[in-house]
Design a protein around this nucleic acid. Structure first.
Length: 266
DNA sequence: ATGGCCCTCATCGAGGGA
């Protein structure tokens, strides 16, 4: 069983990439971020033809998240939640759903959350304050979710590089957005809930990132950051057998600046 | 070397991303 996350930076532009990648990777669940389209423009039929059902919440121009589920897996009725309950927010950044309960299936009852964490711009700005408020609301909600769903996975663009080894040039980035102590404390807060960064369960090549700036030949220079993550609850962590970052789509024509992360479960 | 790219739209310049 494979779970994946990918910030596609416009699903309209990247639809063919997503379909090609789904065909090649054969993941069971793919969480998407930065759809940048309204719900009426979501390519439901194209993804159905590719073998996936879609759950999504979008808006014009910005944000927007989705969960794609491979045909054969089901979604539990009335399990879909859009945005963080109780956190009033016009920005569409969260969607959650529960996989159907099938006897003996590892996926049974698994809670999937696709999240697009705010960027935050820079410490001290209004957007940064919003990011910290959003993170606090997320943590509070996740505590409730974890109590309800022992098998939970939080996938998405966290816009946080958890450690210096997740940054191409930690010296240059010290204290800045994506790596600031406040953001890293929020990430640690998620870990304190029992969530585990599945990527770090395994030996990984150094300087492996999930995002590279379009500018400055970021990808060519491997000047990137690891800001896209898949975190799992304790019950699920025990089933994790691998986590990889697939850099292939970043080499394709007109790529997203992010590349997919995949976690494999027993 | 403090810029550089890419996407979107009450577009052709500006906001947002990270």
């Amino acid at each position: 069983m494979k779970l994946a996350t990918w910030n596609v930076n416009s699903l309209k532009v990247r639809l063919q990439h997503v379909i090609t990648w789904l065909n090649e990777s054969q993941v069971d669940v793919l969480c998407l971020q930065e759809l940048k389209l309204t719900d009426d423009k979501f390519p439901v039929a194209e993804l159905e033809a590719a073998g996936y059902s879609s759950l999504f919440t979008g808006q014009k121009t910005y944000n927007g998240v989705a969960i794609l589920v491979r045909h054969g897996l089901s979604i539990e009725a009335d399990s879909v939640v859009r945005n963080i309950p109780g956190f009033e927010d016009p920005q569409q950044r969260v969607i959650a759903a529960t996989l159907g309960r099938i006897e003996g299936d590892a996926a049974s009852g698994m809670r999937i959350i696709s999240a697009y964490f705010p960027n935050g711009q820079a410490p001290g700005t209004e957007k940064f304050a919003y990011k910290l408020q959003w993170l606090a609301a997320l943590q509070q909600w996740l505590q409730e979710e974890l109590a309800q769903y022992p098998k939970l996975a939080l996938l998405g663009d966290y816009n946080i590089a958890p450690e210096d080894r997740d940054v191409h040039d930690p010296k240059a980035w010290e204290g800045q957005n994506l790596v600031s102590p406040e953001e890293r404390a929020a990430f640690a807060g998620l870990q304190a809930l029992g969530l585990t960064d599945t990527y770090r369960l395994f030996e990984q090549a150094e300087k492996t990132f999930s995002w590279w700036d379009y500018r400055m030949m970021g990808f060519r220079r491997n000047a990137g950051m690891r800001i896209d993550h898949i975190l799992t609850s304790p019950t699920l962590t025990a089933e994790v057998i691998g986590c990889t970052i697939d850099k292939t789509p970043r080499r394709w024509e007109q790529p997203s600046d992010h590349t997919p992360v995949i976690t494999e479960l027993r």
